[in-house]
Nucleic acid binder design. Structure first.
Lengths: 249, 249
DNA sequence: CGAACTTTTGACCCCATTCAAAGTAGGTGG
DNA sequence: CCACCTACTTTGAATGGGGTCAAAAGTTCG
């Protein structure tokens, strides 16, 4: 039943349910949320740096990047969000720490007023705890991201990112870890990995040369998953994915 | 009244109150928490990597580092916690994403069972929301940390870290941004900044050479705060400190 | 007063950046 | 359908920031 629910709120509710115990009433409350559906082309800032957010952003289609920006304009992407994710759920708890967001490709999302979300958490404490758990996982993922940036070489960072995204896309039912679309430009990958676009290009070339990945357009194939995971020193447990995916067949 | 409450739980309650609206009953509940007080020398792992936590760690005295570790043993510190902080509050929401923790210097802390904390959040929804807000700020701080690691040069990272720590220590009443103790070894600074100890040494030398800091032992003086903040491109708003400190003179 | 840990400095090397330019889509209008 | 424009990818060559290796000097503490 759950797997057939294609509503974006339904997908999010599924994810919450796998992280915290919520009941049918909570699920219904989520499905009853209202927000404005917007579609934006890639490269657009959904929430500019430094702006106090007034909405939570549910990703329906496409990719959203969470980022920090420096005074010289340089950016560091700190998270990549795929359909089914809420990019800035922690803003419900503290609107003034909301991160900047950009659409990485043409993206469809739903903007739900933070006030509505906050009201939900006041009416339903279990939902507040579920949101909190979601943010705790978000924090754990960010911790790994930071560790990668601080201590890993370029090829390891790239391998780790591809492993993480591959698994998350597989979990979301939009591909598999061995074959998925990641329509980011190399400039965007550079912003995510803390590298220059030129070096991203060379790094991808190395991974191709080792036979770990192949790229056609912006579709990635991973013929040697274990090899890629070994290069990236990747351990999936931190993602808190359901090991046994409850998808129909 | 609050400022005179020297209990570690009291300090934490003060911080929560500044982030979320909690009442006297919540405050009382926090003060009624029970945990075991432990003191450990620097260099000890409080929570080893990969271990599922069963306690929340309240820092009473000293410094605690949150970190991720790689298969080759290298570490990246992702947060530094000072007295008054809870180092792993998000573990209350999801014990299986608890971060690894190490004592950076001789440290006193209180370990409160996660079950007790979780019970509190079930009895008092407002407290759950306050904990969540605390984690949201934690996440925002980590985002800046990641951005630093990804995009800033060594001297900028160091300057930024010293600014952040300086302000947080000032807020906690244990020093000022212009003069504070930060008893970390250069190896530990290296793990925090994603550098080698050798380069940390050179970087500190550069900051000294520019007249931005002076170091005596492990006490830092910042004669030129604005200069240091400029080098680190530091903007304090993300820390969510009270601009007007409500401390009795 | 010696052992172990830190801090400091020097010399050399390499990974990633910078600068520059050529090649390759993808999309738009004539 | 082709010409053109723009954005993205790819490659080369030179530079530099930070790493690595090694050793000396300073600290701390038993």
């Amino acid at each position: 039943m759950r797997a057939t629910d294609t509503s974006p709120f339904g997908r999010f509710a599924d994810r919450l349910a796998s992280l915290s115990s919520i009941g049918p009433d909570h699920r219904a409350a989520l499905l009853g949320l209202n927000g404005s559906v917007i579609q934006v082309p890639g490269g657009i800032d959904l929430v500019p740096p430094g702006e106090k957010a007034r909405h939570a952003h549910f990703v329906v289609e496409g990719l959203v990047g969470r980022f920090a920006q420096f005074s010289d304009g340089k950016r560091q992407i700190t998270a990549i969000h795929i359909p089914g994710d809420v990019a800035d759920l922690h803003a419900v708890a503290r609107p003034d720490v909301a991160p900047a967001l950009q659409a990485l490709v043409t993206t469809t999302l739903i903007r739900v007023p933070l006030d509505d979300m906050a009201a939900l958490t006041r009416d339903m404490p279990a939902l507040a705890r579920a949101f909190w758990a979601y943010c705790a996982v978000d924090l754990a993922v960010l911790e790994r991201w930071a560790a990668s940036l601080g201590r890993r070489a370029a090829i390891q960072r790239m391998a780790h990112l591809l492993c993480e995204i591959g698994l998350r896309i597989e979990q979301s039912g939009r591909g598999s870890r061995r074959s998925f679309a990641l329509p980011l430009t190399q400039q965007q990958l550079a912003d995510a990995l803390g590298l220059t676009p030129v070096h991203v290009n060379r790094t991808l070339k190395m991974l191709r040369g080792k036979g770990l990945i192949t790229i056609r357009g912006r579709a990635y194939e991973v013929p040697d998953w274990k090899g890629l995971a070994a290069v990236g020193d990747f351990d999936p447990t931190y993602l808190m994915l359901e090991d046994f995916v409850r998808r129909a067949v």
